[in-house]
Design a protein around this nucleic acid. Structure first.
Length: 279
DNA sequence: AGGAAAACCTGCGTGC
DNA sequence: TGCACGCAGGTTTTCC
């Protein structure tokens, strides 16, 4: 469900409201989401004040001085905050954290692709395999992108969705960034020239920043912790617009699958590259 | 060994 | 109206 901008929006909303709160009770209603929910979670966090809320890739972390509670949202997960008593829990409400001030954090996820996990140490990394650079870090630029792509001939669309290449770019913003950079999604990753690498690094930053400014994209489920929808879906120029006229040249937006995920692009603004030499 | 496809699970829209 | 089918924002595992 959420990509980097949605998670960033959630973290920015949670941080001021959760920092300093002290969990009093943890209610776990499901054995697992995507992986088993740690059964000893209450013993780790009850009575311990929250230090801050931060993000790595698409993983929000609630940070305690002893470790991090990671709440990955998968496709359909939501983190909701109730200032008073929470409504009666539904089928998909997997965990509540009730704080000393009477407020409640609820983790809900119908499709159960999310993850609830604990790692020791406030600076620890998410419980996942190798994560690539954060695209909004200043160190992320054309040179770093080149280093991440030079050993793979996969289609560039597939490559930038790989979290080991760059963290946090999902299916929506992969198509949007390639459109902004004018690069065809089928282009082999290791054939991009330096101008294209620069354009793509900038386009990734630009689409993510614009989406954060707009509060994230709400396609269906995404909500901020106070229940608001995002507005970034209005910024989409190709995602989910198959057949619509390109807003630059009016060519109908094309669609195809890359590694099982829908891709959208403009054949005119993102011309397919000729392989080999001209002529 | 790299890369594509399948798997995990539920809900919703579409078309017959 | 109802049912079968396909598709969905992510990540890991399996298979080629």
């Amino acid at each position: 469900m959420p990509e980097l901008p949605e998670v960033e929006t959630i973290v920015r909303s949670l941080s001021p409201s959760l920092t300093g709160k002290i969990p009093e009770q943890v209610v776990i209603r499901s054995k697992s989401v995507r992986v088993p929910i740690p059964t000893d979670l209450a013993s780790r966090i009850v009575g311990k004040p929250i230090q801050l809320v931060r993000r790595r890739a698409k993983w929000p972390a609630i940070v305690f001085d002893t470790g991090c509670l990671w709440l990955h949202l998968g496709m359909t997960g939501q983190i909701l905050i109730y200032s008073g008593v929470a409504p009666r829990a539904g089928t998909h409400d997997h965990m509540d954290i009730i704080f000393k001030d009477g407020s409640t954090l609820r983790f809900t996820d119908p499709r159960r692709f999310g993850v609830i996990a604990w790692t020791d140490g406030p600076e620890s990394n998410p419980p996942t395999s190798t994560l690539g650079p954060e695209p909004l870090d200043t160190v992320f630029d054309a040179a770093m992108l080149k280093k991440q792509l030079e050993r793979t001939g996969r289609p560039i669309k597939t490559a930038i969705m790989d979290g080991a290449v760059v963290a946090g770019v999902g299916n929506i913003y992969a198509s949007e960034a390639l459109f902004l950079a004018g690069i065809h999604p089928d282009t082999p990753a290791n054939t991009l020239n330096s101008a294209q690498l620069g354009a793509l690094a900038n386009a990734i930053k630009a689409v993510l920043c614009a989406a954060i400014e707009a509060g994230g994209s709400t396609l269906k489920d995404y909500r901020t912790p106070d229940g608001k929808t995002g507005n970034a879906q209005g910024l989409h120029r190709v995602y989910s617009k198959a057949g619509d006229p390109c807003d630059v040249c009016a060519t109908p937006i094309a669609t195809a699958n890359h590694s099982g995920r829908a891709t959208f692009w403009c054949e005119h603004c993102q011309p397919r590259q000729c392989s080999g030499t001209l002529f």
